[in-house]
Design a protein around this nucleic acid. Structure first.
Lengths: 255, 255
DNA sequence: CGCAAGACTGCATCAACTGCATTGTTATAC
DNA sequence: GTATAACAATGCAGTTGATGCAGTCTTGCG
């Protein structure tokens, strides 16, 4: 029962060990960084806590930040192909919105790789708390933005260098995405990520007249009341009241 | 006429020398990076090209990137105070827009510090060409975004943690700003930066219905025609036609 | 001139990485 | 069950970015 594992198990022994050390490293990194701050933790510390040699750390992650952020290069090509597979007559904003909801749901692909969902939130909070990690995260979103801009230009048949519209949409969309992330973390992971994305896009489409239902979602989730009313007197001439038409229900329904 | 310089000149001798080496370092960094790429240039190379010791480089810049990017920490406090000095009843979007135009004009404070305007463009292009520098630049804009979000919350009297609206506006505004930068560089520095900012904000306020005149400005400046017409058939249901109302004239007038 | 402030430099040090050669462990063929 | 190939873990040396410290040279000023 110990030695005669069949091939299925045997083949996975290595992979499981690999995954285990990977998780151990990520976990150790999170613990140490949450406790001491990113700059006060060395790779040596992380490796020691995960019980591997410092050199091994770099066999798993290309940089110290990567142990916390998981910048998956494959994600970008996935995004591109997901954009290509949407119907040709769909509005670009809807394409981007749906792709974001499906591919980047719950920050699974941006911060985590199928590990404990409880840790995802802690990781996100640690990232948002540290200036350097925040910067790296923003930069990471920048690469996603570029990828989306190319995808839009491809759909519209225009050239990124000539037509500013794809860049404009990409820039705005990733802003909405980043905002949704931050708010998701702020809600303690209780708000539905897809709802936040929808609300952020609605807010954008309303011309920033109000928050597109973001405040409502947060209020509903956290039971807190914002200091001032939202949606009036904030934008000078733009008419308000067009936002929120696409915000889906955000509680009760299963994922 | 050589030894008896008065105090004015004398006091500036040091400063001039300092400024000279600073410029020399920045110049050397730009030249080398433009020629070889950021990762193929060492601080030692830059110092050697500027004829100072490697240690001296770090007396002028905190990092290798800083020699190309000039991330001025003072800029943030300037932004905050500029936002405070705007009339209290001004719409937040207008506040941010005007502050961006005045404080970040022509990327003077973001990439340069009063040196040759010709080099500013080269620097910008070098930054946008290199993935790592691009990432650092995006991250830098992230700090500006945060600063602006705080300023908006302060103006509205709300709390960043409760009300998502300030974050939403900040995120969108810095996106517009970043877009204006990229387009400015793309135009070869010929487009008026303020016009691009106005156009980007107009596009945002139109709910991304069209590009708010960005394409028109670029076409006017560069003489290129985009592959597809702009403003129709791109966004599904949002009505177009509200954009561009605030785009100022962009050529002929002196800066 | 002579002194003080401050800029430049060298040196030692640390931490993030990388390449290479070696050792250990797992998978598979015999 | 052992030999062997594949691959993961390790140790080691070296490069590079970055910081602190101490000594030297330049500049500012009386």
């Amino acid at each position: 029962m110990v030695a005669e594992m069949d091939h299925e198990h045997a083949e996975r022994l290595r992979d499981r060990k690999k995954l285990a050390t990977r998780r151990a490293l990520r976990h150790a990194a999170l613990e140490l960084v949450a406790a001491r701050g990113f700059s006060n933790v060395t790779v040596e510390d992380i490796a020691a806590a995960a019980d591997v040699s410092p050199r091994t750390f770099f066999n798993y992650f290309p940089s110290k930040e990567a142990a916390l952020l998981a910048d998956d290069p494959e994600l970008l090509v996935e995004l591109r192909s997901a954009m290509r597979s949407r119907p040709a007559d769909e509005a670009v904003l809807d394409v981007v919105r749906s792709v974001m909801k499906s591919k980047l749901a719950e920050s699974a692909h941006l911060l985590d790789e199928g590990s404990d969902p409880l840790e995802t939130l802690r990781r996100m909070k640690a990232v948002l708390a540290d200036p350097h990690l925040r910067a790296v995260f923003v930069a990471h979103m920048g690469t996603i933005e570029r990828c989306i801009a190319e995808g839009i230009a491809e759909r519209l048949g225009t050239d990124l260098a000539e037509d500013p519209y794809p860049s404009l949409v990409a820039v705005s969309s990733t802003s909405a995405l980043r905002l949704a992330f931050a708010l998701w973390a702020r809600s303690g992971g209780r708000a539905r990520f897809a709802s936040l994305v929808d609300a952020a896009f609605a807010a954008l489409r309303s011309g920033l007249a109000d928050d597109g239902g973001l405040a409502a979602i947060l209020r509903q989730v956290a039971g807190t009341a914002p200091g001032a009313g939202s949606g009036a007197g904030r934008v000078g001439e733009s008419g308000a009241g067009r936002a929120g038409e696409e915000v889906s229900a955000q509680e009760g329904s299963a994922e």
